[in-house]
Write a protein that binds this DNA or RNA. Structure first.
Lengths: 331, 331
DNA sequence: TCCTTTCTTGCACACGTGTACAATTTCATG
DNA sequence: CATGAAATTGTACACGTGTGCAAGAAAGGA
């Protein structure tokens, strides 16, 4: 219409300023929180901006602020339904707080390095890591570069790196006592403790509790905490009548494996899982499990992130996510 | 060490140039594909960059190129395992092609507008939409702004908006014939056809095939295609001995509902689903279903995206994703 | 009316990069 | 050696924005 602005280009603050009859600074201030603009000016600017379809270029804003609205979300193992829930909660809450989540799937340990490295090119506001194998060196590099970083359910204690960890002690203890209460006398824990921090910790707490109560218990190690390994583990449970699977995903496999062998659950073998994924409540499983509230956990993680953005020099913190027992049919 | 660069700041191409004893343009060219730099210069620059821990600022690059590496991924209903698979595949493949996926969960129709609108601030390279309710007006606005946009399994035909759609005709036909072959004579389709395009199309194809074969068939409408509605739908199947659920997520609920009522599957009622989610292969379900290859689908979508980035003025295209029958125990 | 205080506004610089253009160097060829 | 072509390099501008600073306007008090 006006023909002033260059044709195939998106309108800039210059275009809006000219149309509104004000300076470009006034436009910038209109769209910057806590900036000083008179109501009349603001109104003129907003009107012109709407007419032109103007949007602030956040790339340019991020350039000058030396900080973008992006938050890296490093995740792996999305076949596990719990991970899917986690990612949904995290991204929803980030968006609600006006961050933009960059989702980085990092399944193969090698690629995790490469992929996380990319984040350093974007001046991200922070990073959330739920991957099982966060490269410690790289995490430290982020922290050193002043990028807030929060690990969820991970082990490594790194200076200036905050963590959110689910209450593994309570989980292990509740699992043991619940199985015993249900009448089990020969317990087992199925766990890939070599690769997963929380699996290792839950296993340790479970064993400690069993020993304290002088209960018979053994460890069934698996390679990965997934359905297939749970299914296979059912073949190795002779003489066991109570099983703690370190996550529900694997517990579903275990139950299916037991049923295939004709073993009655919970009559012959009691099973307890962890996470309370949707499938745990499904009619075919009715799995007794430990609810890990991943919506609360997401809030905790983002709170840690934002508080460190405000005070980068803080000492690192560890936040504990509470677990609660969900009684269903399998124990 | 050198003390030249400002302290607490990340090194810039200036710092690298000074240290390498070259111009800043040489640094830029070193990190720009297809730019002309001599091997010696490149080596000096790379060395200096490594020593300083320099990373190209992609925000600045995106500013001058008028295009960022970001691709918006709008998704909803991540409780459905198929959606989780989809998102995993899409983000993995995007990252592999050097894009950065911005994941935007858009469950409530109202928020989808707001959330997608945000993308226009980032000069994204493109947008992938798997949400059930993509705001048509907004999609058109993206296309008008020259942002490539691809809808996955969505209805609306919009100028310059490409689409990937799973082969609903084959799916519906295969579902009907497979149920009939398995001995079913009184068919039903369970579907929330009001809110989901693919559900509606699959239902139509299923009904058309049934009518062509003069088979008895009825429609069981539900509000949402999820587990809970599948579970409830099992109460409304009197006289039915063959059911097509428009997705596996709901089929799992339906089977659990039938079992709860003591109905034998597949002896009394045959069930067929769609998507081939991991749970369909689980021992408790053994669900016969239609595999929707979401890895291939992701490739198709990204191919459409990149080809339109190269040629923005193309007429809109529709790519068909093939489905294949996976025979298991329920039909 | 005059002075002081508070608000608002515009100018100009900075953020970190890509690239057109011209200047320079390299190199093969006659 | 002369010459033209090709490759490399540096200068300078552009991308679109936030904000310090000083100047001006408005408001309030004596």
């Amino acid at each position: 219409m006006s023909g002033q602005e260059k044709p195939g280009r998106k309108p800039t603050s210059f275009d809006v300023a000219r149309r509104a009859g004000v300076s470009r600074a006034a436009v910038s201030r209109t769209f910057t929180p806590n900036a000083s603009v008179s109501p009349e000016t603001r109104e003129k600017v907003v009107k012109a901006a709407k007419e032109l379809g103007y949007r602030v270029n956040y790339l340019a804003r991020g350039l000058i602020n030396r900080r973008s609205d992006f938050v890296g979300v490093v995740a792996a193992g999305m076949d596990n339904p719990f991970r899917a829930m986690q990612i949904e909660q995290i991204t929803k809450k980030l968006v609600r707080r006006n961050f933009r989540p960059i989702l980085l799937p990092a399944d193969h340990g090698e690629s995790a390095d490469h992929v996380m490295d990319q984040l350093l090119h974007y001046n991200v506001s922070g990073v959330l890591v739920t991957s099982d194998a966060p490269p410690t060196a790289l995490c430290a590099e982020f922290a050193a570069a002043g990028v807030p970083i929060v690990l969820i359910n991970k082990a490594d204690a790194i200076p200036a790196v905050d963590r959110v960890v689910c209450d593994t002690d309570t989980a292990g203890r509740l699992a043991a006592t619940t199985l015993l209460e249900a009448g089990a006398r020969h317990l087992a824990v199925v766990s890939a403790s070599a690769i997963s921090y929380t699996a290792r910790r839950r296993q340790q707490a479970f064993l400690a509790c069993c020993h304290a109560l002088e209960a018979d218990v053994r460890v069934i190690p698996v390679a990965v905490n997934d359905y297939a390994n749970g299914l296979a583990a059912a073949e190795r449970l002779d003489g066991v009548d109570g099983v703690f699977c370190v996550n529900d995903y694997m517990a579903c496999g275990l139950i299916d494996g037991l049923r295939r062998r004709g073993v009655a659950v919970p009559h012959s073998v009691r099973v307890i899982g962890h996470d309370d994924v949707p499938q745990a409540a499904w009619g075919s499983y009715e799995l007794t499990t430990m609810r890990q509230p991943c919506d609360l956990q997401a809030d905790q993680a983002i709170d840690l992130l934002t508080s460190r953005m405000a005070e980068p020099e803080m000492a690192e913190r560890v936040e504990l996510t509470p677990v609660t027992l969900v009684r269903r049919a399998t124990a």
